[in-house]
Write a protein that binds this DNA or RNA. Sequence first.
RNA 1: GCUCGAGUGGUGGAAUUGGUAGACACGUUGGACUUAAAAUCCAAUGGCCAUUAUGGCCGUGCGGGUUCAAGUCCCGCCUCGAGUACCA
Length: 944
Amino acid sequence: MSYNFREIEAKWQRYWAEKSTFKAIDGSEKEKYYVLDMFPYPSGAGLHVGHPLGYIASDIYARYKRHKGFNVLHPMGYDSFGLPAEQYAIQTGQHPSVTTETNIARYREQLDKLGFSFDWNREVRTSDPKYYKWTQWIFIQLFNSWYDKSKDKAEEIEQLIEIFKKEGNVNIKAACDEDTPVFTAAEWNKLNEKKQEELLLKYRLTYLADTVVNWCPALGTVLANDEIVNGVSERGGHPVVRKKMTQWSMRITAYAQRLIDDLQKVDWPQSLKDAQANWIGRSVGASVTFNTMPSVDNQSSYPIEVFTTRPDTIFGVSFMTLAPEHELVSKITTQEQKEEVESYVQITSKRSERDRLADVKSITGAFTGAYAEHPFTGESIPIWIGDYVLAGYGTGAVMSVPAGDQRDYDFAKHFNIPVPNIFEGIDISEEAFANKELTVITNSGFLNGLDFKEATKKVISELEKIGSGQGKVNYRLRDAVFSRQRYWGEPFPVYYVDGIPKMISEENLPLTLPEVEKYLPTDTGEPPLGNASVWSWDIKQCKVVDNNLIDNKTVFPLELNTMPGWAGSSQYFNRYMDPENNKEIFSQEAINYWQQVNLYIGGVEHATGHLLYSRFWQKFMFDKGLVPYEEYARKLINQGMILGTSAFVYREEGTNKLISKGLINGLKVTPLHADVSLVSSSDELDIAAFQKWRPEFKDAEFVLENGKYIVGREVEKMSKSKYNVVNPDEICEEFGADALRMYEMFLGPLEQAKPWNTAGISGVYAFLKKLWRLYHSGSEGSFHVSEELPAKEALKTLHKTIKKVEEDIEQFSFNTSVATFMICVNELSAQKCSNKSILEPLAILVSPYAPHIAEELWEKLGHKESISTEPFPKFEADYLIENSKEYPISFNGKMRFTIELPLDMGKEEIESAVLAHEKTKAQLQGRTPKKVIVVPGKIVNIVG
RNA sequence: GCUCGAGUGGUGGAAUUGGUAGACACGUUGGACUUAAAAUCCAAUGGCCAUUAUGGCCGUGCGGGUUCAAGUCCCGCCUCGAGUACCA
């Protein structure tokens, strides 16, 4: 009987599905363990071999944990809202839900072939109304909350209203809009409802605001910062422009500090934590207000607020710079400078973001003609505008200290502005001195002689005294724009009364996505939902619930934007705990049992997107008392990308000749991608198949070497457009899912990017066949195990393997455990081992990696139940005959000797041997011997 | 520029965290079985030198250092990759 993986794999996949083998039990007596994968967006291209890498790793770990006696939750679902299905709809008219359904079916089929132990009963889809009901629900909770900075916690908006009624907002410390006015209780109570609502919007955790957004005309939508790469859209590479729009935003900045601090609570890769901390970009400094000086043109004085990390250098200010977009620019510019300033503002606004980024070197700016008063010296400081100051960071204005900042220095030199030196003993004739640790301040009034720390402290207290500033922490992180002008996303549960947003009542959720005629913006430029005709009907239904606000006659407009891609993915991990619940987002029993994700595996590309937003939502839910942990994923691993090995043919320029790689020798050639499936493992191109694939080369001349056309190779990202995609289905067909699973693990460390090479799979395939043969040592390869007691040697091999495999899995070194299995099977084969007491535990060991073959062997060993919850074999050190170890000791590279001794003994032996050696050596060198100290198991230390 | 990370055979990668570098696998070469191929099995495989078996020297990006002992630790470079970018 040979290893027929096709039959075996189909059989066990059917068995698992029928018996619901991997169903996670809510509230089981067993200890819980939650293993989560980042759920995929079901794209039309299907899976390539790179996609399942993380899923295989998590599956191995989940299966291992089941063997270790845990009640494992290992769910899967789909992030099924998204742009590609919508774009396909625009092109073809096919409803995105149909496209999505088809793609999901294909994904499911591909996933099933790989033998994952997912609990499919818990599947979620973000585009399913039963699911997005709860995405909308969270949105409402955010809308009804504000952030109390004094408690560092989200609170009910009702509570805020009560405070406003009693004492206004003077005592409130909240995360709110910058432009929130101060008001008293009396003033609040006098306001009409609309005005009150407008003020409340400045406090709500999700709010409507005019924001400058990244507008992508080609995609017809707004993009978040993390959806833009190098100034163009991540998807499609279209240009992006800045545009002002009214949008929903999420007040994630309220949580900036907690998002940084709590990184300490999680076991995540340091690089990912760094990326998040950088993205949030905390900087400590002060906010300082400079007042403009009244002039002939301008009698009034305006305050200009700046943020600086170097308040200690305030006496070195020789000018101020505003971003060209700063709102004060038009107000303070003098008649004389008007023309120059306006033309400069014109030029900079025309420059695209991309140009601005590309051109960092050239220094541009214009003088406004206005001056500000220095808060301490009273000197007049010229106010400039320059595009090196960004409107979007801090206050869009800086106090320029050329002595301490290189950009200010360059600007000053370029425009002949003085550069006062405020650093003792530092030469600033060539460049600015930005190292704050290494100097003391001088020429700075009351700050003279102080270092950075002391001066900063002192200046802040002085600023506070004169009311011109205070210490401040600034974050790079912006509030997250939450509106998208798309069809295929969650509708907002929002309607408008007199321009004021209202939430649809919770019992009326979900507000389902309506049908539309076309998926493009309306003729009047409204988002695609504006095309829906059935929404007014929906609204009338709402009256049943919201009868105070909606009657049969009045139709209130609904929000026409939809939510962004990250909305649905910010809560799915908790929803898996209780996915069918239609009354609550999840029951308290479910969340209290499953608590949080123990292991989360996914790609690092979500570092500043999904992984940040979902932490924010979790913290909010924690504040609301809905979840027991402030962080939802205790441990996270980023699996590395599997890269493709692209193949190239080389066309000689200006000809239709394709030159074999070895014959290029300086010829001018254009490399062209060739589909990797047309190339043999020895890099030979199948010319006939290639011509069929690319009819334009039907008449091309192929210049061969040794009768072959040899392609060039290059490692690139695996992608359809590079024709280097390897399909897992084909691998499964040829070698089986078990071989694919083991090979993906064998390729290299989980977290590292590594190139795919199909040829290498023969090694693990041969291993599986050898493993099979180990259990089929009977005549003609029939199944045979012996009941005899195993040889010592075999026991040693087994226990060595148990130890290593367990250690490897715990450390996620799956690649080395595959090697361990190979060694194990080779040794057992050589020993002609067929003992049941060896082969039974071996099947369990292999089972997380190659579950199908393990189940089959387990059944043949006479077991009726699935192998999946069999206890993991116990390692017993006694079986390792290897209870002594050789300690090599070499001195000077010349003398070399080895001591063999038991592991836990032999201190004296080592000591005396080393001592003897040391004595000889000391004698040779004519000195007294050093003391020799031997640490058991840790070899030797010599102390002088 | 800044912040992380990595450089080991022809290739992917091991190395008990300071203790015999190159496990395991691919590839290559030779052999067995076969009419042949596939499959399978065996042997060799870092480089150089020597050879009658035994051996010798060099070797983990480069240059220093610590140590009896360095791929591993320290200092200074080089190269590549990822993230971020006029962040005040």
